[in-house]
Design a protein around this nucleic acid. Structure first.
Lengths: 255, 255
DNA sequence: AAGTGGTCTAGACCACTCG
DNA sequence: GAGTGGTCTAGACCACTTG
């Protein structure tokens, strides 16, 4: 059934190799939804790994959303299609490429200025402290999609203004040049109507429906590094989400 | 430092007791953001459990978003506030109670009818197959918030129409009476303008901004059980999300 | 009764970070 | 070099599900 595809001398962990192997079987259709994945004991025996390792492989498969475990019954392939990066922060470029569209941006402003009240609160700095402000029109296949205005604490990335080409990926530069890796983004989405300037920039009628986003991004330690306000055309953008219902294990009561 | 609060004869798993203990220290302020959590070795030695058990406790703490681990350095309390149920499906009642509002509903329709094209596609049934349709105005503190129209495969819950009081919690009845436990909800949110009927029911002007939700809920096996379309007032509702950026482990390349 | 996943132990080696 | 988390082993007992 399962080939001996394990490389015990690889730097790739065994449980990860097993997971990828099973993932391949799902992708190829050899394992279909509802079907049981080999049990922990079976994997352990067949592949000559300890049961804990087999277990870790199955658990990580479940964390991907590809499978689910039932005590006393087994582990089964989930019918739900996308083993998806639903809740991943994607940069605009990444998101567009994934959807098969050509991303482009037009820079409206790229400057150092005081944070102002709203950005200051989100970034936990004083309103007078300097931020790098980058305002761009985001386009997919040359059609305007939205306007994004990003604020980054200037102290975190000295020289960004001089060294960054604002038409390229901000996240990539933050990571490679300054070692700033975004770990979490909190996002608030509201629905509203396009104001006159926004409508003009987005090529829609004033009063058209739009999404208003407010995003704050944090590095792993929890320190906020970026605050973004955006306006997106509602006729060309929607929010897709996947929510899970707690299996009693998440909270301890009262919630 | 850590009290011997472990009950080795409890039905509650040791790792879970340890996690809750650490969670308590975070809540009480004894462990603050940025501070290191006791290491796996330290917990293991101090509490007399194996390192794997201590490890499992720390791992589950990280899965809650309360802490994060760094190889070679340690595990630290995350500064990001809510150890939250961000990604949880909550029923309307649960959500409102959490926000401290009194939930109420007014039933507009509660009937059996053919699924129709849109619901049929989401539920993977034929458009002629019967569904139970429940249309309600959702209110918080007596103010109308939104209109929800839910479609449930009639075959899954015989007698629901006679036995369910549509002003109470649908999810609770599905779970207790029919053993249907919602595991995952896929949600699409769009922004739009209120139509005449919607505006009247929601007490807003026609053309006011609204959220349009389309939700499909699945049980663990992936079978779809409920399809909901809703319209929510944008001035009283917003979407809050937390996104994480992949730590290279999630996908295997090309993404 | 047999098989499953959930928990737990007491070790081990490794790569990594930091002083 | 000392400490940390990441992986792995070879066992064990348990609760749960199913025939």
């Amino acid at each position: 059934m399962i080939l001996e595809a394990l490389d015990r001398h690889s730097v790739v962990p065994l449980y990860y190799q097993i997971r990828q192997h099973l993932l391949g079987q799902v992708r190829s259709g050899a394992l279909k939804s509802g079907q049981p994945v080999p049990s922990e004991q079976a994997l352990s025996a067949r592949l000559g790994v300890s049961r804990m390792t087999a277990r870790q492989a199955l658990k990580s498969l479940c964390e991907l959303g590809v499978a689910y475990s039932q005590r006393g019954k087994g582990t089964f392939i989930s019918a739900i299609k996308l083993e998806k990066d639903f809740r991943q922060v994607l940069s605009f470029s990444e998101e567009m490429q994934k959807r098969g569209a050509r991303p482009r941006s037009r820079v409206l402003a790229f400057e150092i200025c005081p944070a102002g009240a709203e950005a200051a609160e989100a970034l936990h700095i004083s309103p007078a402290e300097s931020v790098i402000r980058l305002r761009r029109i985001r386009m997919a296949n040359s059609l305007p999609l939205g306007i994004e205005c990003s604020h980054i604490r200037a102290g975190l990335c000295p020289g960004l203004l001089e060294n960054f080409d604002p038409r390229t990926s901000l996240y990539r530069v933050l990571a490679s040049r300054y070692g700033i890796e975004i770990a979490i983004t909190d996002e608030v989405a509201e629905a509203g109507l396009a104001k006159a300037e926004e409508a003009r920039l987005l090529h829609i009628a004033k009063g058209s429906p739009v999404f208003l986003f407010t995003r704050t991004s944090y590095i792993h330690s929890g320190k906020p590094v970026e605050f973004v306000k955006s306006v997106y055309r509602a006729d060309r953008y929607k929010i897709v989400n996947r929510l899970t219902r707690s299996r009693k294990t998440v909270s301890e009561g009262r919630n």
